[in-house]
């Protein structure tokens, strides 16, 4: 697999928060999201910074792990525990650290209130894709940068059980913008990583909609071959069908206290997504079977409502033809669905 030049990575992927003016910071939201699929364990890590009313940094580390069941926490850090580098990606939130070192992302997380720790090194094997200024309706805007495939090495420890891995498939995105939780927007966002290390294909699906998921505002299916973006199929070329609902007996929710405000186990998470895209002789068919869901629950900024970010773990199969070449992959996938 190719390696991304370190200079490119360092130039593209850095916290925007330190460069915002004090006034801009008050509505600023930014997070770096990583998903790692090690043998026997899936791990989601999210470093986020939002601006407080005075423009101060408010930071959170969300870490979710799934062995036989989900565990994890959202850890909140005040400004006195937060260090953000201005010159390149580097952040310390309490005992948790994220940085780019050479050609790799280095993550070190030790949760204070759950027996979970990890030290991970992630090397991109695809070029990053950056997209500016996604309108979130009247609610604001969002920018993103994504690296659809990386290889991860390191250790995750959960309740004394140590998972060591080398070359595990991983995914990363970085989002920033100015908007309020509870606004008239929602998204579905998912990726697929082949279970086979030799497969050249990686795929990302994104869809922005109104808060009730009634009106799709934009959607895209992005296909990478090796390190490079190979094909983009856009809104008008894509038809999405949802089948059934995931009906778990229990739903793991973080922060845990939010289970008191959102105790329901019923979800609006489709059991199956069927995405068909076709244009100019190319066609792709993506099927995603949802297996498990964990919920990150966010208080709305301007009302007493909540926003639920469903992290849906499942299995994805992609097939089709692009410029006469057969496309096929199947493997790990996590889809994210924002719900009112």
């Amino acid at each position: 697999m190719n390696t991304l030049p370190a200079s490119v990575l360092a130039r593209l992927d850095a916290f925007r928060f330190p460069h915002a003016t004090r006034a801009e910071r008050a509505a600023h939201k930014e997070w770096l999201h990583f998903c790692i699929h090690g043998p026997g364990i899936d791990t989601i890590v999210n470093f986020s910074v939002t601006g407080g009313p005075e423009g101060e940094a408010r930071a959170q580390v969300t870490a979710l792990v799934r062995e036989e069941q989900w565990d994890g926490d959202v850890e909140v850090h005040g400004e006195d525990e937060v260090v953000l580098r201005r010159d390149r990606l580097g952040a310390t939130f309490g005992k948790n650290r994220l940085e780019i070192s050479g050609e790799r992302y280095e993550l070190a997380v030790t949760l204070a209130d759950r027996p979970i720790s990890m030290a991970l090194s992630l090397r991109p094997t695809t070029l990053p894709l950056s997209k500016r200024q996604f309108a979130l309706g009247s609610a604001g805007s969002l920018h993103w940068l994504l690296v659809p495939r990386l290889v991860a090495s390191g250790t995750v420890v959960v309740s004394g059980r140590t998972h060591r891995f080398e070359g595990a498939p991983a995914y990363h995105d970085h989002n920033w913008g100015r908007f309020a939780w509870g606004g008239d927007f929602a998204w579905e966002w998912g990726y697929g990583l082949s279970a086979s290390a030799t497969s050249p294909w990686s795929v990302v699906f994104s869809r922005l909609a109104d808060r009730g998921h009634h009106e799709v505002r934009t959607q895209a299916l992005l296909l990478w071959k090796g390190a490079k973006l190979d094909r983009v199929l856009a809104s008008r070329d894509i038809v999405v069908q949802e089948e059934g609902y995931l009906r778990p007996r229990r739903v793991f929710k973080v922060p845990r206290v939010m289970a008191l405000l959102a105790p329901e186990t019923a979800t609006d998470v489709p059991r199956r997504l069927d995405i068909r895209a076709a244009a100019e002789g190319d066609e792709l068919h993506l099927g995603f079977e949802a297996e498990e869901v964990a919920q990150i629950i966010v208080p709305n900024d301007h009302d007493l409502g909540i926003t639920i970010i469903n992290e849906i773990r499942g299995f994805l199969r992609l097939s089709g033809v692009v410029r006469g070449e057969r496309v096929f992959m199947e493997g790990h996938a996590i889809f994210e669905r924002v719900t009112a």
């Binding site: 206290v257 939010m258 008191l260 007493l304």
Partner: peptide
């Protein structure tokens, strides 16, 4: 209690 909890999860003093 629900209102109190909504405050608790938004107030930086609560952790």
């Amino acid at each position: 209690v629900q209102t109190y909890l909504h405050g608790a999860v938004r107030d930086r003093a609560f952790p």
